[in-house]
Design a protein around this nucleic acid. Sequence first.
DNA 1: CTGAAAGCGCTTACAG
DNA 2: CTGAAAGCGCTTACAG
Lengths: 341, 341
Amino acid sequence: MSSLAEIARICGVSVGATSKALSGKSGVSEATRQRILSVAAQHNYRPNRLVHAIQSGRSMTVGLTCNDFRDDFSGRIVEGMIEVLYDANYDAVVISWDLCVHEGEKVLRTFAERRVDGLLMFPPADQPSQAYLQELKNFRRPIVVVDQTFVGVEDYDFVGSQDFEGGELATEHLIASGHRKIANLYHRKTSTGRARLEGFRSAMQKHGLVVHEQWMREIQRYGTDEAYAHAKALLSGENPPSAIVAFNDWVAMDVLAAAHDLGLSVPRDVSVVGFADLKLASVVRPRLTTIAQDPLSIGRRAADRLLQMLQAERDASPPGKPMADRVPVKLVVGESSRTIG
Amino acid sequence: MSSLAEIARICGVSVGATSKALSGKSGVSEATRQRILSVAAQHNYRPNRLVHAIQSGRSMTVGLTCNDFRDDFSGRIVEGMIEVLYDANYDAVVISWDLCVHEGEKVLRTFAERRVDGLLMFPPADQPSQAYLQELKNFRRPIVVVDQTFVGVEDYDFVGSQDFEGGELATEHLIASGHRKIANLYHRKTSTGRARLEGFRSAMQKHGLVVHEQWMREIQRYGTDEAYAHAKALLSGENPPSAIVAFNDWVAMDVLAAAHDLGLSVPRDVSVVGFADLKLASVVRPRLTTIAQDPLSIGRRAADRLLQMLQAERDASPPGKPMADRVPVKLVVGESSRTIG
DNA sequence: CTGAAAGCGCTTACAG
DNA sequence: CTGAAAGCGCTTACAG
């Protein structure tokens, strides 16, 4: 890769002049500028942005930690982020897969050493270690936590979904459809799961319905066949529920599978509501009734927020209080739920 | 962020000595080293790797262009890449979403300016522009193309799947199950789609079966409801096929949906084979019969290959010919296909 | 063992 | 208009 010095040498001028010419600054004659520009183009010159990063103290780079791209949900979030960052000339993002490498704090250290200007953080799958949280404290750059929170990051800005409201919405849809015997396959290990569960309880209480504990099934190990087993147990039990609120669309898929494998039909024998509105929700039959999240907006808002914080730093304005931004959700009625008697 | 100079000043030694102490080089007394180490730890010192990148001419960074993370397939590929890169101390990856920004060549320019050491490239969704291909030529750093190829990148190393063999495998499974009337929902806009189609034709010919053109349906606009419409037309036509080979699992899902919406049952009325073995393949009912790809291996091998090329560069060994590495696929028999009369 | 100096590739005041 | 010099944060020969 040719350097400024080479271009300067070829043109027979100083590096200073070459620098000015290429960056469009004044102080060079038009003739020299043209000569320099043409030589630079010929030699395919590309300025080294790492130098600029060192000089300005701004790497124009944002760290991004993801736990997993298991479906289109996280993908759409990242898409929204990149879009906004790109427009702000943060076109490059240093990404790292902390779940994959199981070395969260080492990853954070790497970010610090790469001098990323800020961090967009999908929480790790498990509760992070003390070392991780400590490293996070030491990071001292703007951080926006995305999608989920976890113990130890309450002091950071957050962008996610209205999980509580979504939990309510799902439940109220079923109640409004005449359901009383409503089960819940919930997940307490994530903040999203807890909020949705709260929403469920709130809606039940609001309508004077009793939450039957035998229909409340906790998914302890998400991603295993546990949800499927719970669903099967619920549906083949003595007193089966007429509807099931699922932690998310994948769990709802497990319910569909369990019903199918038991020879039951959805929504005739049981209604199901998911959460997320993944691509598969509208592709599967019956189409899922689900609480649609807006991952693109989540990603955009998270990136916007980070850029705001970076701007505030530059303006030396006092840091505002960390705020939680929860993007609205909405009910999408599919074919997996129905009105009953 | 505290600098080497600050640490040096605090310790009352030169920056040179401080540098040696922190990087574990010899030439400092043990006492001074300990003092420097402790001060650095206290002040949470992190070396600026951008400087190292400039000095060494190696940014220890790899560019990654993705078109989309629509499902777990690309996600798993990236997971495999990151894993291998991380182990080689390429722990950070500059990522860019060229589809999202619609400015492919600008993205490549950014990569050049950031001095990425190499490029892992998921091809863009559409055939790239001349400008893009030109910028790619100018890039002059190792490149590995992943998953798909496209016109203009034949000169690069490639890692993908045995798509041709997969197409054969899918078709032969159906033939072996007694099917003769086999339709194909194919996609010619991607290299993977073309190879799978070739595999289909090869298998049909090998078994002396005629390819009925009325059962050959091209998906022109992938991601729309076109595949669904094709499937519906095929299944409700005069002379419906007894089996359908789908371009991939998503298209197979569209076939399931079309069959369902027509009141048909899979596999009783029609058999379906997908391609990819996405997470959803085993979650949906009927479980998909599909050709399983190995995205984790694709990612790992692509990264391995890139690292090899970077190593070869350092060794100044002559560049080998670009090679295509196709990871084996295998048939996964689910419930969406059955043996007939 | 320790420090001063050159250099990586650039930009930006400051002289001529 | 043009060049020489300082500086960003570091490493690495080279002197003392």
